[in-house]
Design a protein around this nucleic acid. Structure first.
Length: 437
DNA sequence: TCTGGGGTCCTAGGACCC
DNA sequence: TCTGGGGTCCTAGGACCC
């Protein structure tokens, strides 16, 4: 590849790559409809935690004009008959794993980019269209989920192609951007809004429009240095990718996690310290469990709480407290103690709290554990066996069977999930057959 | 009444060092 | 009168993604 002087700050990958981006259509809504046939071909929305806002829509719901992240109470007022489901992440995660197993087997290497998307490396595939059609029908037949495939010589172009495959049904769910003539490609990019390019969000779109960049074509044709001076290297890279210069490589191994967040809005607002403490301790327990599952230790812990910023009739308060653990740890009780200390530091009487959470950072692999100088190693060993037992019991009998006492029994703050579907694929008791009886 | 949760990267500016 | 310059590290904030 010839390096262009104008692009000195953008790293290239290689000139002979080809990507297929496979993506499940309306993933959460489609998962729900796999098991409940009464939902098929109906307007259906899936809601965020607390049934707060819309996070997935079936094709029919999209046709009604329902937007992503629209508050549910507003949508329901407009469409009283609309079918809705609370989000069921246990189901979606399991369905995702099944889809990814099938798709990653279809190419020599791949990158799971999100819960419902995967990039396949198809540079040496002789017939790209055949591969795309094969994986499409395979996922449909074996899992029951519809997918679309976009093909491009950069990730950004594959994303664009995937978008075309989804929006224009005449292409049968597969679109190869690299099969177009230069004139056709320009024409297509002229029809695509710059905000629909991967990497251009709402803020950037607004700024670019002021500068006269309105379509994907405008961005592709813009001078690289001009983009750099008016925006950043990130957008410069996106524009290069649109031109067919691959800058974003396939990540073959999952990048090392840098932080871990567990936070939730409350089902109803909380003013008592005890209730806040219960919620914080339960989130910290969950975070510690995740650490152990992933074989990580955390050195820094942050606790945060805040009131509902949408309410202008109440005084607002938000605070966070961050502390460094004496040694990096994955111990539920050690983290819970630290969390209580942090919460006491930031709690203020007289506010209605809406959300709390914890963030663990400065993560290191558990294999590199550094012990404290004056702590008896057998005590650490005992504590680690206790945590392992905790995890085993909770895995066997359901989350929170055994938990930190302070995390609550009543749990008045817990989420609203009025319409949550069964965990069809991960709980024997929820199996579709068992339920039919 | 009701407004998600969990991530990453880049940049600018301040602190600090020699 | 004139008050360095270059480097690193950290943090907060802004932007993006799904």
């Amino acid at each position: 590849m010839q390096r262009s002087g104008a692009l000195f700050s953008v790293r290239f990958v290689s000139s002979d790559v080809m990507f297929a981006l496979v993506d499940v259509n309306n993933f959460y809504a489609s998962c729900e409809a796999v098991f409940d046939i009464s939902l098929r071909n109906k307007p259906l929305v899936v809601l965020s935690n607390n049934d707060g806002c819309v996070i997935a829509r079936s094709a029919e719901a999209k046709a009604l004009g329902i937007q992503m992240t629209e508050p549910w109470h507003q949508v329901r007022a407009r469409h009283p008959q609309l079918i809705h489901r609370s989000s069921n992440y246990e189901l979606y995660a399991d369905m995702s794993a099944r889809v990814m197993t099938i798709l990653s087997a279809a190419a020599p290497s791949s990158e799971c980019y999100s819960i419902d998307e995967i990039f396949l490396d198809i540079r040496n595939v002789p017939d790209r269209m055949q591969l795309a059609n094969t994986v499409r029908s395979r996922v449909r037949e074996w899992i029951g989920l519809p997918v679309c495939v976009g093909i491009g010589c950069t990730k950004t172009r594959a994303k664009l192609a995937n978008r075309v495959a989804k929006k224009r049904p005449q292409f049968g769910g597969v679109f190869d951007l690299e099969a177009l003539t230069p004139a056709e490609l320009s024409e297509l990019m002229r029809e695509i809004d710059v905000g629909d390019v991967w990497g251009v969000g709402s803020r950037l779109k607004a700024r670019l429009e002021v500068l006269g960049i309105r379509t994907a074509l405008d961005l592709r044709n813009a001078d690289s240095e001009w983009i750099r001076s008016h925006s950043s290297v990130v957008l410069q890279r996106t524009a290069a990718e649109l031109r067919g210069i691959a800058c974003i490589p396939l990540e073959l191994t999952a990048p090392v996690r840098k932080q871990l967040v567990v936070s939730r809005s409350f089902g109803s607002e909380v003013d008592r310290y005890d209730a806040l403490r219960e919620s914080v301790l339960s989130y910290v327990s969950r975070a510690a469990e995740k650490l152990r599952t992933e074989g990580l230790l955390a050195r820094r812990m942050q606790i945060f709480i805040h009131t509902n910023s949408f309410r202008d009739d109440r005084a607002q308060y938000s605070a966070e407290f961050s502390l460094k653990m004496p040694v990096a740890t994955d111990d539920t009780l050690a983290l819970a103690n630290a969390a209580e200390y942090a919460l006491r530091r930031i709690f203020r009487e007289g506010f209605l709290y809406q959300k709390a959470g914890t963030m663990l950072s400065e993560l290191t692999p558990a294999a590199q554990r550094q012990h404290a100088l004056f702590v008896d190693p057998t005590q650490i060993e005992r504590r680690s066996r206790l945590n392992a037992t905790l995890d085993k019991i909770n895995q066997l009998y359901g989350r929170d069977t055994v938990r930190v006492a302070g995390s609550g029994v009543e749990r008045t703050w817990s989420m609203r999930r009025s319409q949550v579907s069964p965990r069809y694929t991960t709980r024997w008791s929820d199996l579709a057959v068992a339920r039919a009886r």
